[in-house]
Write a protein that binds this DNA or RNA. Structure first.
Lengths: 335, 335
DNA sequence: CTGAAAGCGCTTACAG
DNA sequence: CTGAAAGCGCTTACAG
C-alpha cells in the first residue's frame, strides 16, 4: 500500500521547493543538472506519478474523449471502438464509452452529461431513433459548449461537424457492377435498414449500378417475418441470380432461407453480405462480404478529433473523410 | 458558443461569495431560502454545470472506472462491457475502456498507466498470454497503489482480488448430464481453449459428467488445422453422437465440418456450443448454446467494485460471485 | 539557478 | 446567514 506520493512530499524530502521539483521533472532548462538529477532519482525511487486529475485541472482539459456507440453487440462498432482505443492510446488519451442502445433518450442523457465537460471531444454514431425523429438539439448543445464532435459511420445527416464514414453508396454500386460484369441479370437487394441513412445509401448504390430502374428486385422491411417472406419471394418465385444484403439481419436471413428452400449457394444464388469478417467466414457456406475496415475508421476518427482539438482545421469548415471499402470473396459468390 | 460558466463568474454576477454560491447549489441549510433561490435561478439560466475535473480533484477521486478487455470483437466481452456501462451510469461513473488484445505487454502498459490514478477502480479479464506466463506483478502493482481490482470472467487464477465469473465447470457438467439422460453414450468435446483457465474448467465439467474416464472423446488444439483434423476424426471415424464445444472457434468449426462431411445435425450429431446468442441463432442449423448472461456479469462486476469502494467488504477478504448459466435449446440438439 | 505566488474550479471547516 | 481562507495537486510566469 504505497499510496501515491505527491510533489509536496517529494519537495519536503529533498528540501527544495515544489516548483523546483516540478520543473526538474519536466526537464526545464531553469534547473541545474545536479538538482535535476537528485529530484529524478528520488521520484523514480518513490515511483512518483503526477496526479492526472490535478494536471488536467491545471491545463483545463480532461485528457479523455467520449465515444457514443449505438450498439456494442454489433461487431462493426466493437471493432471501431478497438481502433479508437488504439489511436487514443498513442495520444495518451483515455476513451470513455457510452452506449446509446439506438435510443434517442439515452443519447440525450449522454450528451447532456458530456456538456458538463467530462471529455475534450466526442465521437458519435447517431442512434437510429434520433435519425428517424431528426432531433439533433442535443448534438448542437455539445457544439454550443465548444466541445468538438466527430460524427462517424452514420454521416449523411447534414450536421455541421467533422465526419468520417464508409463509402456506402460506392460499395454497393461496385458490388452490383461486379455481378453485371459476370453476366448476371437478375440482381436483387435485401434490406432491414432501408429506413436509415446508411441503408438508403447502399440502396442508392444498387440502383445506380442497375441503371434500368425497371429491373430492380427489392425486399425491404424492418419486421423479420415480413422481410423473410419478401426475401423468400425474391429467391424462389422471382429466382434472382444474385442477392445483395445491406446489413447483418438480411444477410443472415438470406443464407438461412436459401438453406431452408434448398437453393444452392453459390451455384443457384450468389450472395454478398454486409457483415463482419468473423461471421462471414464462419457461416456455411461462407459469405462474401464488403469489408468496411472498422478499425481504420475508428483510428482515423480519433485523428480527426485531435486535429480539430489542435486547431489544425479552420473553424466553421468541416472535414469529411471517406474510407474505401473492399470486397472480399468467399464461397457465396463462387468466383 | 456559451463556454462554460464557473462559480466565480456566477458569484460576481450575484454579488455574493463563491462559497455562498457553492453551498446554495448544494442545498446547504446554512443558506437562506431567498439567496438559495436567486442563486439557483441564475445557475439554471446560465446552465451552470460544475467542472467535473475540479470536483474530482477536491474529492480525491476520479469518478471513473477502468475496464480491461482482452478482445472486444468477442461479442461476449462486448456485452459484458454493455452491462458495465449501464450499471456505472446508475452510479454516475464513467467507464474508461482499455483493450489488451490478449497481450501481456499491453496489459502491463495499461496497468502501469492506471497506477497513476486515472481511475478509482479496475475491472479486468486477464489476457491469455498473461495466464500462460503467469506473470501477475502488474496486477499486484495496482493493489499496492490501493486501487481496487475486480477480476471478471477469468477468475480461477488464485489472485487476491474480488472476482465475478460464470460457472464454467457446472455448465459443462450439466450439458454432459443432459445428453446422458437423453440416452446418448458417445459424447465428445472440442476445444481451442484447453490451455486457458476457463477452458480447463469446462473440460473438467465434461469429465465429471462422463464419470467413466475411458469413454472420453476429446479434440483439442489451438491450431485451426489440427483442431479441424481432430474434430473431423471424432465426427466421422469415432462417430460421436453428441459434441460439446467450449468456445467460438470449435463451435463454428464443428458446424462447418458437419456440413462439409454431410453429417446431419441434429439427426446424426447433436451439438452444443459456447457462443453468443446472436451467432448461435443465425447459424444454419441454429446451434444450441450455453447462455452466460454477460450483461448481468458486467453489471454485477461494477456493483462489486462499488461495494468495495464504499467499504462494504472487509479488507483482506475477497468476494467471489458466480453467475449461473442457462442452456438454450435450438435446432442443433433437436429436443 | 531557486522559490514564492497565483491560479485551474471547486468544497468545506471556520470565523464573524 | 455570509464570506474569507485553506486546500485538493499541479504548472508557470515572475522576482530574486
Amino acid at each position: 500500500m504505497k499510496s501515491k506520493i505527491t510533489l509536496k512530499e517529494l519537495s519536503k524530502l529533498l528540501n527544495v521547493s515544489i516548483s523546483t521539483v516540478s520543473k526538474a521533472l519536466h526537464d526545464s532548462p531553469e534547473i541545474s543538472p545536479k538538482t535535476a538529477e537528485r529530484v529524478k532519482e528520488l521520484a523514480k525511487l518513490h515511483n512518483y506519478r503526477p496526479n492526472p486529475v490535478a494536471v488536467n485541472l491545471k491545463k483545463s482539459k480532461t485528457g479523455t474523449i467520449g465515444v457514443v456507440i449505438p450498439n456494442i453487440s454489433n461487431s462493426f462498432f466493437a471493432r471501431v471502438l478497438s481502433g479508437m482505443e488504439a489511436e487514443a492510446q498513442k495520444h495518451e488519451q483515455q476513451v470513455i464509452t457510452y452506449i446509446s442502445n439506438e435510443s434517442l433518450d439515452r443519447e440525450k442523457q449522454i450528451c447532456d452529461m458530456l456538456t458538463s465537460g467530462m471529455v475534450d471531444g466526442v465521437l458519435i454514431a447517431v442512434s437510429e431513433e434520433t435519425q428517424k425523429k431528426q432531433e439533433y438539439d442535443h448534438l448542437f448543445a455539445l457544439l454550443d459548449y465548444d466541445i468538438p464532435v466527430v460524427i462517424y459511420d452514420r454521416i449523411n445527416l447534414g450536421l455541421p461537424a467533422d465526419k468520417i464514414g464508409v463509402d456506402d453508396e460506392k460499395s454497393f454500386y461496385d458490388a452490383t457492377k461486379f455481378f453485371k460484369e459476370k453476366g448476371l441479370e437478375k440482381i436483387g437487394l435485401a434490406s432491414a435498414i432501408h429506413h436509415v441513412g446508411i441503408g438508403q445509401l447502399r440502396i442508392k448504390g444498387y440502383e445506380k449500378g442497375m441503371q434500368d430502374l425497371d429491373s430492380l428486385y427489392m425486399a425491404t422491411s424492418t419486421k423479420p417475418a415480413e422481410l423473410k417472406r419478401k426475401i423468400k419471394e425474391l429467391i424462389t418465385s422471382e429466382k434472382v441470380e444474385a442477392l445483395l444484403c445491406t446489413d447483418f439481419e438480411s444477410s443472415i436471413m438470406a443464407t438461412r432461407i436459401a438453406y431452408e428452400e434448398n437453393i444452392k449457394v453459390p451455384e443457384e444464388l450468389k450472395l454478398i453480405g454486409y457483415i463482419s469478417k468473423e461471421v462471414a467466414e464462419y457461416l456455411t457456406p461462407s459469405i462474401s462480404y464488403i469489408e468496411q475496415h472498422p478499425q481504420e475508421l475508428g483510428s482515423q476518427a480519433v485523428e480527426v478529433l485531435n486535429n480539430r482539438l489542435e486547431g489544425k482545421y479552420e473553424s466553421g469548415q468541416f472535414e469529411e473523410k471517406i474510407i474505401a471499402t473492399t470486397m472480399v470473396h468467399l464461397e457465396s459468390t463462387g468466383f
